[in-house]
Design a protein around this nucleic acid. Structure first.
Lengths: 225, 225
DNA sequence: GTCTATAGAAGGATAGAC
DNA sequence: GTCTATCCTTCTATAGAC
């Protein structure tokens, strides 16, 4: 009984996840979800009462999945630079395995901004920005990253990994003539994005005019593991 | 007569633009568009026959508007660096005046990828990438930007201006405690993004080898769903 | 060209038998 | 728990009067 319940409920949930991601809340049909799960329409209401509630369950699960996985990255005892590299490896890997999540989340939040409040409150990763800037205040200071511009930096970091998935179709269409493969583009991006950010930050050290000897010293690891 | 026709057709078109941007194709209702225009539902079909056709007209107009404005930027006789600065000033200004367009376009393309083909074919700005890399091949070479990585660079450039608008709600919610104002964030971004890109590129001069010392090679497989 | 009225289909949700 | 049958609403689209 309980065993079977769980099966049905899970089938519904998984199918709903699939359909909602594919079509969005407005485009998704309860019929499609039921068909996809191979069950009767009525059961959707039996388990979740309304389309809205079913969607909320799916939405929260997705938001949780996509953010929770990143927490370990920031808990590690690494330098800012190393965290950037690790972040892009993990984040882009995660997105590569779930390439449709960014558009889904961002679009649904955009259409219904009230969803964001719960997200910011309940999702630990949302505090990363403050945590990060506190953990690495010295380093950031050394790079002449003012506290004022930390939000700019954070948004830039997120942009570089999320945007390619959001614009996947356009990117693919635009470069397809030059025998471009999205998968290899994404694989290369892990390192490219990290280098991009690190260079953008580090160069600040030297900007106070032609430190021609400008050898860039890598700061020591703050600690072993 | 013709005068009045144009008025009605325009009112419909403008209202449709408003509603489609706000709700997306699936969420938009013909009734809402008619009400917004202050006219009868039937007139929508009289002028545009179907919801689909009305949407297509709106979509193409928006795509055209958002891209056409950028063409002059790239026609100018400027260095790559100057173009970057000018691009962000113009692009972010454009987006600031139409902050909902990026999500609208990207989401609709995502839900209906066939829309992208016409876009890439008919929209001159889509050729910018090839034009740019040809116009500035010397400069890019001097910066050690390999032809191979030009798509990475192009996507990165676009990310930095588009993403903040796509994630506006999240960004606002995340930083609101630190008395953050989205408008001033965006204004500052014009210069920030330009500097960011220029530094990221220029630094290549000084880092002949892709520097990946001290990187932690740790394979971690993320399971798909 | 513009309106009213309505067709015809599809949507979410519920009642009730099993 | 699961199914069939069906209610009620809403949606796009059209017919036809003016």
């Amino acid at each position: 009984m309980t065993e079977k319940d769980k099966l049905t409920e899970e089938k519904i949930f998984d199918s709903a996840t699939e359909i909602f991601i594919e079509k969005g809340f407005d485009g998704a049909r309860m019929r499609d979800i039921a068909d996809h799960a191979g069950i009767n329409k009525s059961l959707l209401h039996y388990y979740y009462r309304t389309k809205e509630r079913l969607f909320n369950a799916v939405f929260e699960n997705i938001a949780d999945r996509i953010f929770r996985k990143l927490i370990p990255v920031f808990d590690k005892n690494l330098s800012f630079e190393e965290k950037i590299r690790l972040f892009y490896r993990e984040h882009i890997d995660l997105l590569h395995n779930n390439p449709r999540l960014p558009v889904f989340l961002l679009n649904e939040i955009y259409r219904n901004p009230s969803r964001v409040e719960k997200l910011v409150k309940d999702t630990p990763i949302m505090k990363i920005w403050t945590v990060l800037s506190e953990q690495h205040s010295e380093e950031l200071e050394r790079f002449n990253v003012s506290a004022d511009s930390i939000p700019q930096l954070m948004v830039s970091i997120a942009s570089l990994s999320l945007f390619p998935f959001i614009a996947k179709n356009i990117i693919t269409a635009m470069f397809e003539k030059e025998d471009y493969d999205f998968d290899s583009f994404i694989e290369k991006r892990k390192e490219y994005a990290a280098e991009f950010v690190i260079r953008a930050i580090k160069n600040r050290e030297q900007l106070p005019e032609a430190d021609s000897k400008g050898q860039i010293r890598r700061e020591k690891r703050t600690a072993g593991r």
